[in-house]
Design a protein around this nucleic acid. Structure first.
Lengths: 253, 253
DNA sequence: TGGCATAACTTGTAATGACAAGATGCCGCG
DNA sequence: CGCGGCATCTTGTCATTACAAGTTATGCCA
């Protein structure tokens, strides 16, 4: 049967209406239909265009605002944020990427690569259902033949299948995803704290029990903002420093 | 007039209802009325307790969820997160700046403020001559009356003289430099690693010897790029997370 | 006793309606 | 011409109602 040229949102669909609308609008922002700094259609117009209520529109816009793609001005309208390039404060770089550019020799020892059902925590981070299949990777990274980090990685199955036979020994997951899987990366959220080495860590990193370990929880998203790679990185406190640079934001936003 | 013993939210107030409710609930979470891992009252109960609609309750809960204070499980209820304070460092922000905006109470205990000659390491970082006079500040920061960090700060003398009489107890050095000293900040370079608590740290942070500590070496520059503030920050590993977001550089901008 | 259906909770999604408050242009009045 | 006020846009806040969907305990039935 026919379908209107206008895009349609389906109510009974597997994903809620506001998610469909959000994805659709994000697509238009990323493909330039709504260029940076331009005003988007008003909430009322979006309601009319897609035949949904204002609550639904607002939930979609609220999520996009959280993602940083748009901002709203009371009484004026909703606007597309300036493109990412201007927002960059630090660059997202893989470990080997960063180290090899500094002349270090990097080797990855893959301890485990298997497909398992996602537990609650992994599922929540990757925005998939608990029990969905994910690839679980355990790697130890050696810098100049010395173990410096243990990395636990979870990647959704469809994507992970494509890097199953990739060279995980010398290459960063980041580079493989970008170059071999045509999955441009967007941003990553990191949480850093300090813990003590447990049994697994003492063995993997050949350090003493109770040694200080830098733990980084990293959730990497693709360019569209979808989470695609959840990792725990454990670095030897005595052999590694995490360095970054932050810039002072003058405005509040 | 009378007032019910029950807490009241005021509709015509300067702040919206959901903000009042959010602040009230956050207070109860932070003061232990709703302890970690406990289930909070259901949305329906909150509606009844405070005489507001479910939309208002959900907006308040949604914001608290974004802050990381609570999490929700479909069909089960709303729960208080394990308390782990964190600092988001997408932008260069002082500790108190970050925490107080999230409703935490911050107190700085100034252990020492003296002018000393710069040692070799400090001089190198601040790009001054060894022996030049610098201000050395030792502070312990308390979050909700609990010590979370020990901070060692070195600032070149000419600048430091101007903040000698500033309120270091409640204000960030960053804000004082910017607002009182007309010294706009530029960027900061950070190096993060993990160490074990030594004597000084166990005493200052009231933790056990050998506990994991997150160490951050931070060199802050003014807008012109001159180093103006060199610091070591020691955070309790069990009570603090450093969070940040990085973006992938796609090209040369 | 074991297991399944169900009732009674929970949060998630969505529509509709209403008014408040900020922004902006238009128009008439001085 | 200038300026105040109003109409009319925008987003922000909030109530009410309804149903969907996940969770759990209860109790009936075999």
């Amino acid at each position: 049967m026919q379908s209107k040229s206008k895009l349609q949102l389906v109510s009974g669909a597997p994903t809620p209406l506001y998610t469909q609308l959000k994805d659709l609008l994000r697509g238009r922002i990323l493909d330039g239909t709504y260029p940076p700094h331009s005003r988007m259609p008003s909430e009322h117009e979006l309601c009319a265009s897609f035949g949904v209520s204002r609550i639904t529109v607002r939930q979609a816009l609220g999520d996009l605002q959280k993602e940083g793609l748009i901002f709203r001005i009371h009484g004026k309208g909703t606007f597309v944020s300036r493109p990412k390039a201007f927002q960059n404060v630090t660059s997202l770089q893989g470990f080997a990427e960063a180290m090899s550019s500094m002349g270090y020799e990097i080797i990855n020892r893959v301890l485990d690569f298997s497909f398992v059902p996602a537990d609650a925590r992994v599922a929540a981070r990757l925005d998939i259902a608990e029990g969905d299949e994910v690839a679980a990777i355990r790697r130890v990274r050696l810098l100049n033949r010395e173990p410096v980090s243990l990395e636990l990685t979870w990647i959704p199955s469809p994507l992970a299948r494509r890097l199953e036979h990739a060279d995980l020994v010398t290459r960063d997951v980041f580079l493989i995803l970008e170059n071999d899987c045509e999955t441009p990366l967007g941003h990553a959220d990191l949480a850093i704290d300090a813990v003590l080495a447990d049994d697994e860590l003492t063995e993997a990193l050949r350090i003493e029990e109770g040694a200080p370990v830098l733990r980084i929880e990293r959730l990497t998203h693709d360019a569209a903002g979808r989470p695609i790679d959840f990792e725990y990185l454990y670095f030897r406190g005595d052999a590694f420093q995490y360095r970054l640079r932050t810039d002072r934001q003058r405005n509040g936003a």
